[in-house]
Nucleic acid binder design. Sequence first.
DNA 1: CTATCATATGAATACACATTCATATGAACG
DNA 2: CGTTCATATGAATGTGTATTCATATGATAG
Lengths: 121, 121
Amino acid sequence: MSEAKKHDHSALVDKLHRELPGDKKLCDLADLFKIFGDTTRMRILFSLFESELCVCAIAELLEMTQSAISHQLKVLKDNRLVANRREGKTIFYFLADDHVRKIIEQGYEHLTEDEHHEKII
Amino acid sequence: MSEAKKHDHSALVDKLHRELPGDKKLCDLADLFKIFGDTTRMRILFSLFESELCVCAIAELLEMTQSAISHQLKVLKDNRLVANRREGKTIFYFLADDHVRKIIEQGYEHLTEDEHHEKII
DNA sequence: CTATCATATGAATACACATTCATATGAACG
DNA sequence: CGTTCATATGAATGTGTATTCATATGATAG
């Protein structure tokens, strides 16, 4: 037997090490949440909650540069959170699927629960 | 009436502007997701899915510095995603509530749906 | 084909933040 | 108390990335 060092958890650690999802999965998951972790992108997603919008409408709404919006829309599209369709010169963006709404709603719930906590203080 | 400029959406933009959640809410929400948007924090959260763990167990499991883990645990705790309890010298961390699990699971679902897409290609 | 409108994109800049290193706190034990 | 173990924390560093600026693409109208 190996001499037990200070505070040995090798057994537990080994077990958990086998159970943890692969690094690829965890990294992908973190990358997904990273997309939601930016105020501009979050505001864009909320803008698209009700209806599709063209790029310049989003830019006006959020009072930001067309370029800034366009860059972020690319990030959102590359990660399949939004999709777009062309109509003449205009390109309309819309939410890609319902997961986007669900993920955001879950986050919202956590927040409101926190407010509950703050009231007590 | 104001002269309609090129591509006028002022009506739609005004309407949406009133409907959008306040900047504080959106910022808080983005900040929440930002927490999940880091591989180390995601791995820590997954480590705690099954059972509570002390800091050095997490550090061993993830093969990272105690300091790095401690810094991230602070972030997680400040945002109420984990909580801790003391037992002598040791401090055990655990998931604060079920929202954490739900949020992560929603993200996971979105990912697996994407894999579906990739298979078709 | 040229001008214009809508959008995309590359490079540069500026800022946020994860990790490291050194050190501090804090509990238990002799 | 002084030492040791477990954890926390402050400052410095390096990396990632959001925005800006300038410019490119791409569609439409004349």
